[in-house]
Write a protein that binds this DNA or RNA. Structure first.
Length: 492
RNA sequence: GCCCCCAUCGUCUAGAGGCCUAGGACGGCGGCCUUUCAAGCCGUAAACAUGGAUUCGAAUUCCAUUGGGGGCACCA
């Protein structure tokens, strides 16, 4: 095996690719980069009915967002194109014809209705389902009659009735199938389009694909492909089937498990480096402890031998944690930049746009270790942006602090703070600690009351930094509002 | 029904016969730090599906069983 490594990601354009598909693309890409091989993007658009508008764009956008650049494929071209199967029909038709001529395939005129009835009956009698080879040995006259009737045939592969097909999968090891349980599958549909089986075999061969990396669901159709390679006289590629990502019910991940498209994760505020790292780790590990890895580290250390065989659950809690780790690793400027569109989208409409980047930059250090996604920021930092706060009176009091104390503290704070000329952290701290002492309350009690007054929250970034960013004017306004809120509350 | 694949803490995993009284991470719990919330740090509970076989010795090998997943389309 001295052939250069060429791997392909071959999605069909039926929607936004979900994390499972994309993980396959990642393994392709990582393996290609690790070996210095080529990563090819090929579009399997042979099902006219399932093709979806915008799907191709979503595929490319997903790959680009994760930084998976392809060496050949749409937009970039390549020596083995075209890279859309719908533009390669002739190739498949020629291959099918060749197999018919060689006696490895035949035309089938069975109607969908007959096939449907056949399957129903097989199921009812609990028999092995599959085509009954009705057209396998049609006489020339019978064929001519069907043709004359205007029936458009499909081409079926003539599967040997005896023997076994075996192959070595790089992850699953040796796998053996009895040929007798494989039915004569359709290679070429009556509309002239190939099925996946034919198209992928022809393309993988003509595109000189060295390793077929795909999910485990394909394991059971691999023997069909091997049989075709043999009949066509092609050298088969190496197979690397990998386990799938499963949902909470352990079933293969799909739309019904909720938000699973990669781009949805982008929109929820996960970073591409998080997704790359996290997705790699579902089914592959470097060693017994390394978890946070750069793309470079992953590429350098990746090996198929260290991929697992077990379907894995997509653990959202761990994803959140990891995204937090990556967020905290960003510089203030970088994070501010990334946060801007999310703040713009999720902050209440009354907040004036455009947002001030410099102001955001001041806030970022305060919320950085408190958010796990970019989207979290808006809800977390809302009080930094809105004009009017809704104070919840009950938040001012706790076991240690009653309403009386809170009100007194606020009034004293208002007085002393209004005399301050600047609102920097040190000065605020000095002033307020002294005030607490004077009032005979714990510093924390006073801080908490002021926290609620200035933010309307009981969980915020550190008080002095927060107040400093908010600025004197806004703080004083809010403290006054809090005083009247508390006063009114007590009177009523 | 037939065929294929899989099986270590709740979850993701390390483990390729003795290093395992099974390691790490997320989550949980407890603590430290602390003006709240986080972050950080420390600690803790928590798993080899079951039964045989091989071996001086098995999470690691083999065979059953059980459980789970996938396939059996003119879809990929």
């Amino acid at each position: 095996m001295t052939e250069p490594v060429r791997v392909r990601f071959a999605p069909s354009p039926t929607g936004k690719p979900h994390v499972g598909n994309i993980r396959t693309a990642m393994y392709d890409w990582i393996f290609a980069r690790h070996t210095g091989g080529k990563f090819i993007l090929r579009i399997e658009d042979t099902d006219v009915a399932r093709k979806k508008e915008g799907a191709l764009e979503a595929i490319m956008e997903s790959l680009k967002w994760l930084g998976l650049d392809w060496d050949e494929g749409p937009e970039v071209g390549g020596d083995y194109g075209p890279y859309f199967q719908s533009q390669r029909l002739e190739l498949y038709q020629k291959a099918a014809k060749k197999l018919v001529e060689k006696g490895n395939a035949y035309y089938c005129y069975c109607s969908p209705e007959r096939l449907e009835a056949l399957r129903k009956e097989q199921e009812a009698r609990k028999l092995q389902t599959g085509y009954d080879r009705f057209c396998r040995n049609l006489s020339p006259q019978e064929r001519a009659a069907k043709e004359a009737a205007g029936i458009k045939p499909v081409v079926r592969f003539k599967v040997p009735e005896q023997g076994q097909t075996r192959f070595h999968d790089l992850i699953y090891g040796d796998v053996v199938f009895e040929n007798s349980i494989i039915d004569d599958f359709v290679m070429l549909k009556s509309d002239g389009y190939p099925t996946y089986h034919l198209a992928s075999v022809v393309d993988d061969h003509t595109m000189k694909i060295s390793h077929v990396i795909r999910d485990e669901g394909w394991l059971s159709s691999a023997p069909r492909h091997l049989l075709m390679y043999k009949a066509l006289g092609y050298e088969p590629p190496l197979y690397v089937h990998h386990p799938v990502i499963v949902g909470a019910d352990r079933a293969k991940l799909s739309k019904r498990h909720g938000a699973v498209a990669l781009l949805d994760f982008r929109d929820m505020g996960y970073l591409p480096e998080t997704m790359f790292n996290f997705l790699t780790l579902i089914g592959w590990s470097l060693d017994d402890k390394t978890e946070i890895m750069t793309r470079q580290q992953i590429v350098e250390n990746f090996s198929i031998e260290r991929m697992g065989k077990t379907g894995a659950f997509f653990n959202m809690e761990k994803l959140d944690w990891m995204n937090g780790v990556y967020i905290r690793g960003l510089t203030i400027d970088d994070l501010s930049e990334k946060l801007l569109p999310f703040l713009d989208k999720y902050l209440p409409p009354e907040v004036k746009r455009p947002l001030d980047v410099n102001y955001v930059r001041q806030i970022v250090p305060l919320i950085r270790e408190r958010i796990n996604t970019l989207k979290d920021a808006a809800a977390y930092a809302e009080f930094f942006f809105v004009d009017k706060l809704e104070h919840d009176a009950s938040k001012f009091t706790d076991k240690k602090t009653n309403a009386e104390t809170a009100l007194t503290a606020l009034k004293s704070a208002e007085e002393i703070l209004s005399s301050l000329d600047s609102f920097d952290c040190d000065q605020l701290e000095n002033t307020l600690r002294r005030l607490a002492e004077k009032l005979g309350v714990k510093a924390g009690q006073l801080f908490n009351v002021l926290r609620v007054a200035t933010t309307a929250r009981d969980a915020t970034p550190p008080l002095f930094e927060t107040m400093a960013v908010l600025g004197k004017e806004r703080c004083m306004k809010r403290i006054k509002a809090a005083i009247s809120r508390l006063g009114n509350n007590r009177d009523s």
